[in-house]
Design a protein around this nucleic acid. Sequence first.
DNA 1: AGAAGTACCGGGAACGCTTTCGCAACCGGT
DNA 2: ACCGGTTGCGAAAGCGTTCCCGGTACTTCT
Lengths: 389, 389
Amino acid sequence: MIKCVKCSDVDAIAKAGIIRGKQRYYCGRCDYYFTLPSLEVPLVAVSSKKHQPTIVDIARELQISKSTVSRALHGHSDINEETRKAVLDVAKKLDYQPNLLAYGLAKSKSLTIGIIVPEFINSFFPYVIIGAQEIANPAGYHVLICQSNESYQTEIDNTNVLMSSRVDGILVSLTGKTPNVDHFRKFERAGIPIVYFNRVTTDVCASKVIVDDYDGAYKGVQHLIQNGCTRIAHIAGPQNLQICKDRLQGYQDALLHHGMEINESLIIYHDLNPESALHCAQHLLDLPARPDGLFALNDPAAIATMQVAKEKGIRIPEELAVVGFSNEPTSALVEPGLTTLAQPMAEIGKTAVNLLFKQMNDVSDCFIPETKILKTTLIVRKSSLKKQF
Amino acid sequence: MIKCVKCSDVDAIAKAGIIRGKQRYYCGRCDYYFTLPSLEVPLVAVSSKKHQPTIVDIARELQISKSTVSRALHGHSDINEETRKAVLDVAKKLDYQPNLLAYGLAKSKSLTIGIIVPEFINSFFPYVIIGAQEIANPAGYHVLICQSNESYQTEIDNTNVLMSSRVDGILVSLTGKTPNVDHFRKFERAGIPIVYFNRVTTDVCASKVIVDDYDGAYKGVQHLIQNGCTRIAHIAGPQNLQICKDRLQGYQDALLHHGMEINESLIIYHDLNPESALHCAQHLLDLPARPDGLFALNDPAAIATMQVAKEKGIRIPEELAVVGFSNEPTSALVEPGLTTLAQPMAEIGKTAVNLLFKQMNDVSDCFIPETKILKTTLIVRKSSLKKQF
DNA sequence: AGAAGTACCGGGAACGCTTTCGCAACCGGT
DNA sequence: ACCGGTTGCGAAAGCGTTCCCGGTACTTCT
């Protein structure tokens, strides 16, 4: 018979509906509803996910507490050398792998740094990422890579993913379409450091790693001038990016300082999508008064132009001298080799992570952002040597 | 005066050492040691890490329980529409971002899939990764990218990182040096599905995504033969990889089926490190009886050979016809354009993730691995058109 | 009217780890 | 004998979720 779980009465019990498939009872004496505890043996859990060893497993095996295991695994001081060895042995025996999720939850840090890049098809960003990993990994951090795919919305989505992942810091190179950096403010609010690299904006107060774009552009254009170019075009980038502004400025100043005029029709704006590069090239090469020199804001754009020129039968560098920017490996492979401004790609990644770590370890409440400016080097290849012809 | 915390006696109290800077007492009556609870106000926590809003914050704001908030955020059924709206509003107001670490811990799944690639400097793997993300992201998963850097040890380290991160599944392309896949057994033991792609081995029973390497190689070599090559060399890869074996076999069979002999001296083994490609090229082109055709196991090796040939003044394709494998974008840019076997790179990534998901959702205890074989297409460019000269 | 069913919501354990606090058992110098 | 100090370890409270139970207050059948 059914007994009330409170008063153990039998007579005052009435059925009171079914709840989640279980019979429910009501004790009129106690004015109390209840269901009977289920006795079902949870049929052997056939979950394919097997149990991963935890510190509790280690503790149980050694008949010690999990606190001690935790201490042992982290080289903590308050621990006997023998106990530590025993723990390490068992850990190895069980093939214990710490659960980073639990660790992160407990410590409120994920040992992860996020990195948002616009793309990683060209080699520039991969090299930066490799540089970043070279510093981050030995320090126990791993890198969560997101690509915004040159889309503002995707960039926003990426920030949310990184936020949810509770990354300890982030590295960002913006898209050409990012109008503002409001979507990064949440990181500031949460006290998560950000370092912008390569594609940065002016309107943000944060650490940055860039190269001397103005100087690089200046050197590149000067090189074209010295090679006898008189009509030098520029494939510029979106002007929301500091980097593109600077390269444009370098281009313009180089012209002016060498007594040449700035011809707006020779400046065309690339939105950084691959197809756009071809359009820019088409446009420039179809100009009635065709340029005889080109400074492109990056190697892919320069190479695209070379391809289009080739199709049109325009000889490089005789009829068109070309200079790119970045010195991606491909630029050495195209024919003729592309003259370009080498960026220290891995160095950028390394510097960015170092800056990030600096900020992460900064305890003072007022961190002062730092901007590191790396140098570019002009790599001269055939594509610009117009003079020799 | 000091009172015993148990008996409140004052007289039997004696000092009993200092512990962690705090005075410790001993009550002779109770035979009990104790320290006084510290009254210190924890001076304003100046941790730069600000508190991130949690479901408890939302719950408090609305005076409801966190269970309800959780239900609301997940579109659970047992929830009133108004309550849900209210929760969503507050969540937005507080800029709530779920904590993936806590989620992962509670659900025993991280919503992350790991991917180990040997490198991502060349575009092949980036394209595969993009394909993978295209399927994984919409499904709510994100991708943790590791590069083994063509090192066996790093590959092992990567497996441990992914294990610790409690990824829900992994995609792997092996290094050329991986002698066995024992380091992946732990995933099987833990019930974490693996899909191998591109670089796989024979000695493992798991799902795989590959292209028809044998067929591709055969087509490539046949194409060289049809273009009048009589001494066709092959830059082969490490024979621990199925893919390399198959391409070698395709090469050999194509020769045999066309009545040509296999000349061991024309086969050279590339360890897949970038420098090694140049060595292979050097060696082949320095051969007393130089080959007049080359089938390289991948585009970078083919392109490296073209570079070396160029330096040596060997004309392509007149003196050396070249065929690569993969159709990386660079192969269209080099001069002459590289004939190659196009692989559906993004498709490989997509297929791999789909296979992974299939396995992740498989409830039967005996999952039957599947191997998907995609097709290659011969892309003919100038590098192989020897006949026309 | 009583039994059955429904709609929502709250309590609390669990996930695996770190960390603080404090106990027990020492040792050594007055 | 007493006080000061040290060493090693355990208990338990979180960290932010999910989810199983079950409770309350209804409505809807017989």
